[in-house]
Amino acid sequence: MEAMEDAMKWRKMYACGLLFILPWTAGAAAAETSGLAGDNNRGPYIAIDLSAGAPNDPVADGVYEADLGFEAGLRLGMGYAFEGLRLEGQIGYENFYLNNVNPLPGSPLSEADTTGDLSGPVIMANLLYDFGAPGGSRPFLGGGIGFARMKADYHGFYCSIFTLQCWDGEQVVGGSDTVMVWQAMAGLSTPMSSGNGEWYIGYRYFGSNDIELNVIGYGPVTQEGVQAHSLMLGWRWQLPTY
């Protein structure tokens, strides 16, 4: 049964991978049929962006609260622009840094200092819209949906006041799960001073479905999905068409 579940999860990842290449293939076909290659507001492009922000503190089945302190993400996208509308496939990596695991009343866990992270690769299909004509600053809105393979590594740690050093302890929560994720973006893009591209800055919301994890010595638990409100900074380059 577990093998079948894993197979289904990876089929979902594969399906989302197809979504990643669809914008590129669709855009190439559109360029051939419309003769719009070379238009500064249309054509294929690549983009890279990073984010940093504040996540939620998800609860796991009344066992613990994960005090997440910081979100950091990096993404690479490939897409096609149809004037203001853009279709984009994106791969990336999300990392949620753990401040502490706080046991809830009746929990099998004991109070202890913990650290670690919840992280994994993400693949998404995005739809975005740029307002205004190219050549100047333009606001944009967008959203996306996809899948992530999130892995938890929450472990204890201890420090020595004499040597001013800290060491990792035993793992408290582990496991990984493939979950559906989504994002929403809003910001402002501005042409680069040199080159055929833009840089952009804005707000990004990221969310996920609940995540199935494992408390060491206790068993499986369902941790609430992660959410993050982040600042996003990125660059986008228009690719040449022939």
Results as ranks from 00 to 15, higher is better:
E2S: 07
E5S: 12
E5K: 14
D6H: 04
D6I: 05
W10N: 07
Y14S: 06
L19G: 15
F20I: 12
P23T: 02
G27T: 02
T33L: 14
A37T: 12
A37C: 08
N41Q: 09
N41G: 10
N41L: 01
P44A: 09
A52F: 07
A54T: 10
A54V: 11
P55L: 02
P58C: 09
E65L: 08
E65T: 15
A72G: 15
G73I: 00
R75F: 15
M78V: 05
G79H: 02
G79C: 01
A81Y: 00
A81R: 13
E88K: 08
Q90E: 15
Q90G: 03
G92Y: 03
Y97E: 03
L98T: 02
L98Y: 02
N100M: 00
N102V: 12
A112V: 13
T114Q: 12
T115W: 00
D117M: 01
D117Q: 11
G120F: 10
P121M: 03
V122W: 06
I123D: 04
A125E: 01
A125P: 00
Y129I: 07
D130K: 04
F131N: 04
A133V: 02
A133S: 12
G136L: 03
S137T: 13
S137H: 06
R138N: 06
R138P: 05
F140A: 04
G143F: 09
I145H: 05
F147M: 12
M150V: 12
M150G: 02
K151N: 13
K151L: 03
H155V: 09
Y158I: 03
C159Q: 15
I161K: 13
T163C: 06
T163H: 12
L164H: 14
D168F: 03
E170Q: 10
V172L: 14
V173Y: 09
V173T: 14
G174S: 15
S176I: 03
V179H: 08
V181Y: 00
W182D: 08
A186H: 04
L188G: 05
T190C: 05
P191H: 04
S194I: 06
S194G: 08
W199M: 08
Y200P: 00
Y205V: 03
S208L: 00
N209M: 05
Y218M: 06
Y218K: 07
P220G: 08
Q223K: 05
Q223M: 15
V226E: 03
S230D: 09
L233M: 13
G234K: 04
Q238A: 13
P240E: 04
P240M: 03
T241L: 03
